[in-house]
Write a protein that binds this DNA or RNA. Structure first.
Lengths: 152, 152
DNA sequence: GCAAAAAGTTAGCTTAGGCTAACAATCAAG
DNA sequence: CTTGATTGTTAGCCTAAGCTAACTTTTTGC
């Protein structure tokens, strides 16, 4: 410690802490990114099961805007990670864990969407932004969003 | 068209349009994801140049929370995409295009951060969420955020 | 001015998430 | 019950973004 004024927090320490927070933020965002696709799939699968009684890969592909092989590969990952079960050439089902995740995602999506709409955004833009934002809101922010939407 | 009531918009058409909007949202989010890393780097490089007079790969690595080889590879892509220039074993510089992007990102980041703070969020969480959210807010939403923060 | 430390690079591996082409299975009409 | 359309899978490719290990270059301290 080759330092003087230690009675008050030195400016460079404040700065250092800010930088550290930023680094944490970057790392956190990278982590969030890794589960984004899984969350989108699980949420969509739940929706398809609810609406159509089943979630077929072809419908997932259409709704996600990707090709069938991409869906197949992603479903393989979801199955490996214990979020879905499936049999060859058959529809997809959510595991207990998958259902829980889907529910949580839907909840977040709805709050974010409701919040954006209550801010005065048009529905199309709100939908689009919500889709991107929902994976990056902390519990704390979500609570504030819900609160705000309720008050409006 | 084996359909009846065409005087009003049929419910399944409304539904179809909603689904289409959702698909567009997914595609849009995927596009946004592709430029997220580049935006983060460019923004950070601008910051380092401003604060330290130069942007060294080692500092980028530390601040991004990744290793030096990862930075090297990413810088290669940024150079290829015309956002930065660099010479071997030397610091990194932004091109005109890179500077413009950095400025835009910083602007977005600041608005989102200011907005979250004005909602009542603590600074650490705000920083973290802003980092994730900033890449997914449309111009329209950004305007509403700025407006809200100003009014607070 | 040289040796050690720090910084930068290269090679090579991994995973995720896209794609097309080719093939296999299922389903639906006839 | 067969055949053609639809759906699903597999193989193989690509890019991005991460890593470690090994190497080169630059900087720094004596």
């Amino acid at each position: 410690m080759t330092n003087d004024q230690n009675l008050e927090t030195a400016p460079q320490e404040v700065e250092a802490r800010a930088v550290e927070a930023r680094v944490e933020a970057f790392i956190g965002v990278r982590e969030a990114r890794r589960s984004e696709v899984a969350e989108d799939y699980v949420e969509l699968i739940a929706e398809l099961i609810h609406d159509n009684g089943e979630a077929r890969p072809v419908d997932i592909a259409t709704r996600m805007g990707v090709t069938a092989p991409t869906v197949a590969k992603t479903l393989g990952r979801l199955a490996r990670d214990g979020l879905i079960t499936r049999a060859k050439y058959r529809s997809v089902f959510l595991t207990e864990e998958g259902r829980a995740l889907a529910k949580e995602c839907r909840h977040r999506h709805e709050i974010v969407l409701r919040f954006l709409l209550s801010l005065g955004l048009d529905p199309e833009t709100a939908e689009r932004d919500a889709e991107g934002i929902e994976h990056h809101v902390s519990e704390r922010t979500l609570a504030l969003f819900a609160d705000f939407a309720d008050r409006s």
